[in-house]
């Protein structure tokens, strides 16, 4: 037991590497927020464009969405970071991770927003248009408020799942929690930093997961 505590909860090691984990925590939070904002923003934009029903544009959107839903995020990150330089496009690990996860979240959230828009009954469009509201006004004041209500629980869950992927940034040397933890572990020869890192992730994501659960029960009556 002492041996276990020495390995995983070593106070000395904890104190020494605490600042590094905090640095990682801050970077992970920053990266995660950037992904959520970019991903959801882009997803909503694509869904709105899709609601204009331009045939060619819609086909392109569907293909892009499918690709980013089908490819593993780690594969996309590695493509961006290791493969794109051959085409003369270099980016930092941070940019590659942010861009990849944002595109994946955009793809998933476009589908969710679009499904939400479709779920709003045709009569709502007709009623709004019959009172003289334009297409944009109908979307903004009548359709989206109803669609968003319907889509909040799946969006939150999807955003959490994808934002957790910030840990994948460790593969391309982003100094986020996992990188800090594994580096500290190999320097100290002790797995305590991994414990710290695990705790840091729980502190960051557990509240969001519980919030998502609360949202789900709150919106359950809509189904």
């Amino acid at each position: 037991m002492d041996n276990f505590l020495f390995s995983f909860f070593n106070l000395d090691v904890m104190v020494r590497y605490f600042p590094a984990i905090v640095d990682g925590f801050i970077l992970t939070t920053y990266l995660g927020l950037a992904v959520v904002l970019t991903g959801l923003g882009l997803g909503l934009t694509l869904a709105l464009i899709r609601s204009l029903r331009w045939r060619v544009v819609n086909v392109l959107i569907v293909i892009a969405v499918d690709v980013f839903r089908a490819l593993p995020p780690l594969v996309i990150i590695i493509l961006f970071y290791f493969a794109l330089p051959s085409a003369g496009v270099t980016m930092t690990g941070f940019t590659a991770t942010w861009l990849s996860l944002s595109l994946v979240l955009a793809a998933f959230s476009e589908e969710i927003f679009w499904a939400g828009i479709l779920a709003v009954q045709k009569g709502q469009w007709e009623a709004a248009r019959s009172t003289g509201l334009g297409l944009g006004q109908t979307l903004a004041y009548v359709v989206l408020p109803q669609a968003v209500r319907l889509t909040i629980p799946p969006l939150v869950n999807r955003a959490i799942a994808i934002t957790k992927g910030t840990a994948l940034g460790s593969v391309v040397a982003v100094q986020e929690i996992l990188t800090q933890a594994t580096t500290a572990q190999s320097f100290s020869g002790n797995p305590t930093p991994l414990t710290l890192g695990a705790l840091a992730y729980l502190i960051l994501f557990l509240p969001v997961v519980i919030f998502g659960r609360w949202l789900e029960t709150r919106f359950a009556w809509r189904r």
């Binding site: 996992l178 695990a198 729980l202 994501f205």
Partner: peptide, 10 residues
Amino acid sequence: DFFRAFPPLV
């Protein structure tokens, strides 16, 4: 909730 909050890679 614990394992949904935990990144699988971690």
